[in-house]
Design a protein around this nucleic acid. Structure first.
Lengths: 331, 331
DNA sequence: CTATTATGTGGAACCGGTTCCGAAAGTAAC
DNA sequence: GTTACTTTCGGAACCGGTTCCACATAATAG
């Protein structure tokens, strides 16, 4: 591998001149030609370590992600990656396998590696996160969770919850099980539920119960089975599509038909909700687009340009077969 | 951020001594204590760029992946990542969005960034790939495709195809549509089909037709519809789980019941095949485990230790509801 | 035709580590 | 008590770039 000095010798100039040529400094036409020629001959390309050593900065955006095998994560990453490429930045992924400890480590490690900025696909913001972000002076962008101290890009969980509540009520459902998750997850555990609650408070005579389960399908399936036995809801409003899939599995094994005997809705808009039969009605979030604007925002932050503190990404209710229209049939 | 020189001054020694301390050279007890103290005080951690600049090598394994939003990819990446972490290596992902051109670029770019090794989740090996691998002198490991010039880790596509063929025949099926993919994909397009063919050649009186479609669900769905109309197979043997999902969708929209009117099998073992109802019978590959051993192998190669040229990862047939036992019913 | 300003170029220092080499000091052998 | 070997440590060079500064030459102004 050739170095800048090789090029300089080959072109008969000083290496500072070659460097200037590469970085758009003032170079004469004749020398420009010679350097171009030399670079072509050797296939030279600068050593990024030497560059970053001096620059004390890279053009890499570190992205911390709790898991790789989720639709939301991968779509978001794709969006970030594609947009960053367009802006001549690179993305480096750190997968934490849902360990908060590893998230913290990654923050310090990214800072140490002189990442230009950090994007965190957040599930929960602890004091340790805050401490880490404040001690490294790298620009940070949160996706999925909001925090007053940091820039963030969130999905419109509250209004999605509200819209889903209205939708379910419109369809005639009144005996409703809301199957949510821990409130430590502000977006998924709190906001969606709050939006949903607002919708049902606008209607009288609702029989709604709130439950909590975990994010994975088997846990949701187990919870659903218990709830079906004890409450017999007409519909499950689930805080995520995976939970809705758990409900679906539970109803299969209980011999309950969807949507005739039980309706189900989710949040997320995961591909799988449209692939299966019956398809699941869900509030679709635009993960890829969110990733793209996250990429734009972090680059703005890196370049010290102003960015609104919190950006809200849109959603859309997608109607599928898992919900019937039971207006009239029950009244 | 403090440098090695700061530590040296603080401890009252030369920076070469600090460096030696950090890299396990000979340092006296007393100085060792002083340096430790200084490091603790400042929270010093060495600048990786300066290190790599001198070392001309990193401990990063570049991983090139055609897409992030596939079960196989993400599981494999998780396996690679976890194993590399254990061995004190890092993984850097380059997503190529299924562009072969970007794969080539990534190879050169990884080499330029002094990656210790490169793992390619391969779909197709072109001459350009070979040229790139040969011109950079970085160790390379292929996953999913085999090539005589390079080390590789492949799934046992041939035997999986063979086992699937035997399974389908055992269940009594004789009128079979094999829905495959392009033969440029040796593993998925050729090996699986060959294995399957071998199984059916051992049995007389089979009515098997071979078709080709694309990897995505809508394309598979369209192909399936045509085939159902023209051939009315009793079973679809699909080269991937996604194609099987396409067949499922086609049969729903045609009003065909699975498995009573039509059976379906896939390859892959994607999670979704077990989540949906009916579950899809499939040949499960162990992507995560494959990723783990890929990680082990590339590290061996990086350290110039011998590694078998090609490693074959296991598979397992998973029986689900999408295939009936029709022995007797048809005979 | 001199004074002034641009423009192009080379030399040297610097970024933050690692490593080679030799000096100094301590220890063992004779 | 001298020689020889080890261990510990500092100085300096080096990795491959970027950038500051000084200087030479050319272009423009007066």
């Amino acid at each position: 591998m050739s170095t800048i000095l090789d090029i300089a010798k080959l072109a008969g100039v000083a290496k500072s001149t070659v460097s200037r040529y590469l970085n758009g400094g003032s170079v004469g036409e004749a020398t420009k030609k010679k350097i171009e020629q030399a670079i072509k001959e050797t296939g030279y390309s600068p050593n990024p370590f030497a560059q970053s050593l001096k620059a004390k900065k890279t053009n890499i955006i570190g992205t911390i992600v709790p898991r790789l095998d989720s639709y939301a994560s991968s779509q978001t990453l794709i969006g970030i990656d594609e947009q960053l490429k367009k802006m001549n930045y690179q993305m480096l992924i750190s997968n934490t396998s849902q360990s908060l400890e590893r998230e913290i480590e990654s923050i310090y490690s990214f800072a140490n590696q002189k990442m230009a900025g950090i994007i965190l696909l957040a599930t929960e913001i602890t004091d340790q996160h805050i401490e880490a972000f404040e001690s490294v002076k790298v620009p940070v962008l949160l996706i999925g969770q909001e925090h007053e101290d940091f820039h963030s890009l969130i999905h419109d969980d509250f209004h999605a919850g509200y819209a889903m509540g209205q939708y379910v009520l419109e369809k005639g459902y009144r005996k409703i099980a809301y199957l949510g998750v821990t409130e430590r997850d502000i977006s998924v555990g709190v906001k969606r539920k709050q939006g949903f609650k607002k919708a049902i408070q606008e209607i009288d005579a609702c029989n709604v119960r709130f439950y909590e389960t975990l994010f994975n399908i088997p846990a949701a399936q187990a919870s659903a089975k218990e709830i079906i036995d004890e409450f017999q809801p007409a519909i499950f409003v689930c805080a995520t599509d995976n939970i809705a899939l758990g409900v679906l599995k539970a109803s299969y094994s209980e011999g309950i038909t969807i949507p005739q005997d039980l309706a189900v809705t989710g949040f997320g808009g995961y591909d799988v909700t449209g692939i299966i039969h019956p398809g699941i009605t869900t509030a679709k979030f635009f993960y890829k687009e969110a990733g793209e604007s996250a990429a734009r925002h972090i680059v703005e932050l890196v370049n010290e340009r102003p960015v609104e503190k919190v950006t809200v990404s849109k959603f859309e209710i997608i109607e599928r077969e898992s919900v019937d229209n039971i207006i009239g049939s029950i009244l």
